[in-house]
């Protein structure tokens, strides 16, 4: 799907969007959204006004789609607009322009329905320190409107699946960072949402925890979740993502599978491809420095 922008399916806001789209939309309570792409944005834009810098286009007319059972990687340097775009999708920020749908629900029109169908994980989404993992899962299942009579069964299922059992009744503040990470992921999927957003999830993790997390995310994809995964680490995007969207200065410059991107550019390594699209030359060292190799990033 290269180039990405001129051929979006915006002419059919709720209609069929190709074979991949038809598989999506089987999330709980979304009968009306069947056949819709789980995630779709259309010229999504966020503009800040800043007296010092004038108009700042943090996200500039971004078109994205994410299908069921797919991990879409958002690859870009720090400040490229990844987090802002994902925050608009999770309704924490309001778009300045354009539209975005999650399971057929528009982010501005039905923010609560959007969040019901969404699990959001980032380094900045912390856990409540004074309650236990079991209470955490119960709390998030409830506030995310998981059917009350099934909450307890769901909590037990999550504890079992993520190996939380040994510390399910210790307070979160007493857990190690690896344990907290497991609880955080379980929290993200507590209400079994069809769409998951991972915003630079490995940024504060050590190598082993990062590998484990990537494994879990891969497993969730195999269950049929639509996953948006933002990163600035090239190897992570290469290993994990089914499709990669290169974002730079708020704009999506290209979208496609790694092979498609290779074919389009004639380049092999993702780093080269990124540099090619972003137009980054040796002179722009700041951007290159942020795009560190995976080992280095994980080591920090």
């Amino acid at each position: 799907m290269i180039p990405p922008a001129p051929t979006p399916d915006h002419d059919r806001p709720r209609g069929a969007a190709g074979s991949a789209g038809e598989r999506a939309g089987s999330g709980a309570g979304d009968a009306g959204a069947a056949g819709t792409l789980p995630v779709r944005t259309e010229a999504l834009t966020k503009i800040y006004h800043d007296d010092g810098r004038g108009e700042v286009r943090a996200v500039d007319r971004v078109d994205l789609t994410c299908r069921r059972g797919e991990i879409l990687g958002l690859l870009g340097a720090n400040g490229a607009g990844k987090t802002t775009a994902l925050r608009m999708l999770s309704t924490v920020l309001q778009p300045t322009g354009g539209r975005a749908w999650v399971m057929g629900h528009e982010v501005r029109e039905e923010p609560e329905r959007v969040r019901e169908r969404l699990g959001f994980y980032s380094a900045s989404t912390a856990l409540y320190p004074k309650i236990t993992p079991r209470e955490t899962l119960r709390f998030f299942a409830r506030v995310n409107r998981y059917p009350a009579e099934r909450v307890e069964a769901r909590v037990e299922e999550l504890i079992d699946r993520f190996g939380i059992g040994d510390f399910a009744d210790s307070r979160v503040e007493k857990l190690s960072s690896g344990m907290k990470q497991k609880v955080s992921i379980a929290r993200t999927v507590a209400h079994d949402p069809p769409v998951l957003i991972f915003d630079e999830p490995t940024v504060a993790l050590d190598v082993l925890n990062a590998i484990e997390l990537r494994g879990i995310i891969g497993g969730l994809r195999d269950e049929g979740k639509a996953i948006l995964f933002s990163t600035h680490i090239m190897s992570e995007a290469e290993q994990l993502c089914d499709r990669i969207a290169i974002i730079h200065q708020g704009k999506i410059l290209a979208t496609g599978t790694l092979d498609e991107l290779r074919e389009a550019t004639g380049l092999h390594y993702l780093e080269e491809i990124f540099v090619h699209y972003a137009g980054v030359r040796d002179t722009d060292e700041a951007t290159l420095e942020q795009m560190q190799p995976a080992e280095e990033a994980e080591g920090g």
Partner: peptide, 14 residues
């Protein structure tokens, strides 16, 4: 400060 507000704001609670 702790980052839990972000977690809560991305939940379905209005």
């Amino acid at each position: 400060e702790r980052g839990t507000l972000n977690t809560l704001l991305t939940s379905a609670a209005s």
